[in-house]
Simulated assay, not measured.
Amino acid sequence: MSRNGSFSSKVTAAKRKTSKKPPSRVISIPQMNKLLRKSHSSSSSVRPLWPSGVDQEMLFAKSQIENAPIIKNETRLYAPIYRNVSMFRRSYELMEKMLKVYVYQDGEKPIFHQPILDGIYASEGWFMKHMEANENFVTKDPGKAHLFYLPFSSRLLELTLYVGNSHSRTNLIEYMRNYADMIAAKYHFWNRTGGADHFVAACHDWAPAETRGTFAQVHQSPLTESSQKSGRQPVPPKDLSLLSLQGNTNYIQHMKSSKFCICPRGHEVNSPRIVEAMFYECVPVIISDNFVPPFFEVLDWESFAVIVLERDIPNLKNILVSISEEKYIEMHKRVKKVQQHFLWHSKPEKYDLFHMILHSVWYNRIFRIRPA
């Protein structure tokens, strides 16, 4: 729908068709909200084998977040786009003040420690670059670390080891399993929690398969849109999803002149369509069953995006035209306000994509912490 009100020609659609295989069970956003609350109220993480002072620090942070003072005057954060802006700000403040991350130096290039900084897979590279160079969050003392980062590139793993047209990723999975076994044998940090305080950040849609098994407890942070397939139940608080920007001039102009941009889930997860829509100030219309949006634990996606179940595609026009101009104007405003959380900078800035990725891992770890 264009900003002058006409329908059809000005609805910007993604350039890739949706997957034909529907999931066996569809989880709505309200149901995901319940799963999120249930996850945060239960202790689903592995109990550490021995106690550590960092656990007490995180339990303290959890208490501070749950009892965060109500925000009254805040200029950087627009309250309507968050689930609870007071909790988010308090959590972010504590992250800046407390969080320490141990970055493993093990692993050979190019699969490890060699960031890709351009193209559709650039997010994992920029995160790796910023994380390894960070002086505020990184610690060389694993005893002080709240989180442990495994700096590998899922894209370079594919380019280095995948045998073209083999349709087999066995050697990639085996490579990552051997790496995890080496880490577990060399360091005791992994064994304390079974990897529950470790995390990886990956763009490629193969990453979940590459890190299965040995990495079961690790926070896996796919840096592209999440697309749950084959009926797999989404677990909102564990995975976060991010993406990089691309597009030609004509495509961009369509987005800029549209009120709504249609974002079907597609077949793979390496698509930038949702963040492209937000970047060009177009309200995203997410058509996907069991889609877990980026930063779901803190952002109220229904406040600035339209989320449509795949079965409701025939009714899409009615859904969009039923949105009043007043509601659209507010959603459009919120799209602009949320942009700051999806931008990369050559030097990380407060509330940007680098910090939001780190905050998501920090926040979800805090609400899964279990004392020994």
Rank of each mutant, 00 (worst) to 15 (best):
V338A: 13
F199M: 10
D55C: 07
G213I: 06
F215Q: 14
E276Q: 12
A61C: 15
L309N: 10
K100G: 03
H167D: 11
I262Q: 07
K10A: 05
W344S: 00
L161P: 05
K337P: 00
H332E: 11
S227G: 01
N134C: 03
A372K: 11
F127L: 13
S221K: 15
S44H: 07
F7P: 00
Y187I: 05
W362M: 05
P234N: 01
Y187A: 00
P23L: 00
L309I: 11
I357S: 06
S244N: 08
L172W: 05
Y251V: 14
G195E: 03
T249W: 12
L242T: 12
F342G: 00
F127R: 01
I357L: 15
V46G: 08
L156N: 04
A145S: 07
L243G: 07
G195F: 06
A13F: 07
H167Q: 11
I307Q: 06
Y179P: 05
V54L: 11
M255C: 07
K140R: 09
L240I: 15
G5M: 12
A180D: 01
Q340F: 04
C203Q: 02
L353S: 10
I29A: 07
E135C: 05
V103H: 05
I70W: 12
P69M: 00
F342C: 01
H146M: 08
A122E: 07
A68Y: 05
L156I: 12
I65Q: 09
F199D: 11
A305C: 14
A207F: 03
E93G: 01
S42Y: 08
L35V: 06
S39Q: 12
R334Y: 01
H254S: 02
V361Q: 09
E268G: 00
R232H: 07
F7L: 05
P151V: 03
R3Q: 12
N134Y: 03
S2V: 10
L243Y: 11
R365M: 11
V361H: 10
V218E: 11
G266I: 14
E135P: 04
S42K: 14
V338T: 14
A14V: 05
L77R: 08
W362F: 15
N134H: 04
A209N: 07
H254Q: 08
R273A: 01
N250L: 09
F260R: 06
L358K: 11
L242R: 02
G164H: 14
R192C: 11
M278R: 04
V308E: 07
Q246M: 06
L35F: 14
E325C: 02
